[in-house]
């Protein structure tokens, strides 16, 4: 599969909302602003020379050191990255797309960050977004059915966040 970058083409349309990621990375990526995400994705799927018609994978990575000593040394501020991996069945090329978001909406702890849903563009995003909502705690605006998918519906917390702690008790079952 050929890795492709369509940054220039996208920049002519979206300007600074699309940027190239780290040029030395093994899998190179492009970074997209949260509010332009849905439009960029639509172009990526529909443009004649791009046709990224499959969303292979979608996931969130939480960047947070719970240990204050390590947090001091880290070269990043706490944040979350949403990583989309796209591929084209026709051209056999792939593209990695990233969206950087805050861990909490407007810095208010407990309020989930909101990102536009891409369910309307790739149907498979439906379950993937539910999974990210369930495990990493990101809300998707415009998602038709945003419920927990792997954990029980009355589960509390978002297990794949780095500051997650197992509940002491769940329906009479000891947690930790």
């Amino acid at each position: 599969m050929v890795e492709q970058s369509f940054t220039e083409q996208l920049q002519s349309q979206f300007g600074d909302a699309v940027r190239d990621g780290d040029p030395d990375a093994i899998d190179r990526w492009i970074e997209v602003d949260t509010d332009r995400l849905a439009e960029v994705c639509e172009v990526l799927r529909d443009a004649e020379n791009i046709q990224l018609d499959m969303l292979n994978r979608f996931t969130a990575v939480d960047y947070l050191h719970t240990d204050p000593k390590k947090a001091e040394k880290a070269d990043w501020e706490p944040h979350m990255e949403l990583v989309y991996h796209l591929s084209s069945i026709r051209f056999k090329h792939t593209l990695v797309l990233k969206v950087m978001i805050d861990r909490w909406n407007n810095g208010r702890e407990g309020e989930l960050p909101v990102v536009p849903s891409v369910t309307g563009i790739w149907r498979t995003a439906d379950w993937h977004e539910r999974e990210v909502f369930d495990l990493s705690g990101v809300e998707f605006s415009g998602h038709p059915n945003l419920r927990r998918i792997l954990c029980p519906e009355d589960w509390e917390g978002y297990p794949l966040r780095k500051d997650y702690e197992l509940p002491k008790e769940y329906h009479g079952i000891r947690g930790r």
Binding site: D53, M54, L55, N56, I89, W122, R123, T124
Partner: peptide, 12 residues
């Protein structure tokens, strides 16, 4: 259970 080409791709 017919899955068309486009449907299969869209659902990944």
């Amino acid at each position: 259970g017919v899955i068309s080409r486009d449907l299969a791709i869209s659902y990944g």
